[in-house]
Design a protein around this nucleic acid. Structure first.
Lengths: 204, 204
DNA sequence: ATCGTAGTAGACCGACCAGTCAAATGCAAG
DNA sequence: CTTGCATTTGACTGGTCGGTCTACTACGAT
């Protein structure tokens, strides 16, 4: 059991070293060697736990997804909140998170899922599928929320699935533009407009 | 003058070789050597025309920007069209372009400006500024269009600057999500909702 | 004819890349 | 005490990276 903990420790030290690097730079720009040095681990140990760089980045994706799912996302999609306020909350959370990262790191890092998607999805279908699954789950959260808002009469009926996808796209797009400006304040200015997006039910 | 043409030819052959590569892969994943081989040019010649890889990608960015400005964008933002129809046209153009690329290349490549922004903007402020300028110009096009739509009474008054930025963000976000799905049809389904985005004039 | 210069050629540089491997170590179960 | 496996070590591979350098060619201007 002791061994298990040590092993887990090495593995998680690698992930902990990799996370901020993949977030702040890019997949291709971060090398295994650098991660090993930062984690205090030898090459051989690294490849004991991860068959390839791709497997590492997948673990990093999971780590970020868990962090979000257990943090801001869980707070935002609290069933106790009125549906549309959950969306406000999520936008706020994204804004404050990006802002705090910029204060510490000096730069807007954006969304790691979006970053990786645009970098690797033409080159690696396995990574693309992994990232797509993250987006699909996020879309479901939006969709449920919209359905509840419609059921509650807060908003008129609409195509919840497509509108959810549109909202997710908008959020990613705003983060992209904010990153181009290195300014999280754009999220503050543009974020709330996410609720104006609407796709009507197609007539059939 | 003859020399000028030959020189221009070499330079533009390099750019022509680089364009599809940077578009379909990533900045870091495309090497100078590969570009030289594809363009039939030696390393020395390459560095005669481009001081660095960054200068090449800037020329590539300009080439894409020109291609768009003289093509679809010029068609879409035709003053003869009713303002809001120009936006429809632009979405259509983006959709058909991505679709045709996928038919030829087998993949959704997305927007090279968005791709590069997420990849390099934390690592190279000069490239970030270059890309930001592209987005700023695009935003201006949307803004003028919205202002004209308001003047014509087609849509109620709104904050044209912020709404234009929101629309640009949405477009980039939809392309990002479509790339994650490797499916340009998402542009077709989500694109038209761009016109539902609205940011009201702030009260001051 | 010759000089200057734009362009070309291609070997070369040190650094880094992802990934491999054989040998050693540590530890738990028998 | 021994066997066996998880883990670690660190040297090593073949290849690529962006970029440099010197020599050479081609051509226009004087």
């Amino acid at each position: 059991m002791q061994r298990m903990n040590i092993a887990t420790d090495t593995r998680s030290r690698i992930i902990a070293a990799a996370k901020p690097r993949f977030h702040s730079r890019s997949y291709a720009n971060v090398g295994i060697q650098e991660i090993c040095e930062s984690a205090g681990v030898q090459k051989g140990s690294f490849y004991h736990f991860f068959p390839s760089k791709r497997d590492l980045v997948m673990a990093v994706i999971d780590a970020f997804a868990d962090e979000w799912a257990n943090g801001f996302v869980a707070e935002a999609f609290d069933p106790a909140l009125p549906p549309m306020e959950r969306i406000d909350y999520l936008i706020d959370a994204a804004y404050f998170w990006q802002k705090s990262i910029k204060q510490v790191h000096g730069r807007m890092l954006g969304c790691i899922f979006g970053n990786l998607t645009l970098e690797v999805s033409t080159q690696d279908d396995i990574l693309r599928a992994k990232l797509l699954a993250i987006f699909t789950r996020a879309k479901s959260r939006f969709k449920e929320t919209l359905e509840q808002a419609v059921a509650a009469g807060t908003i008129p009926p609409l195509d919840a699935g497509l509108t959810a996808e549109a909202m997710l796209a908008y959020l990613e797009g705003v983060i992209l533009l904010a990153k181009a400006q290195n300014d999280p304040e754009l999220l503050y200015r543009l974020g709330p407009a996410i609720k104006t997006l609407r796709i009507e039910l197609s007539g059939d």
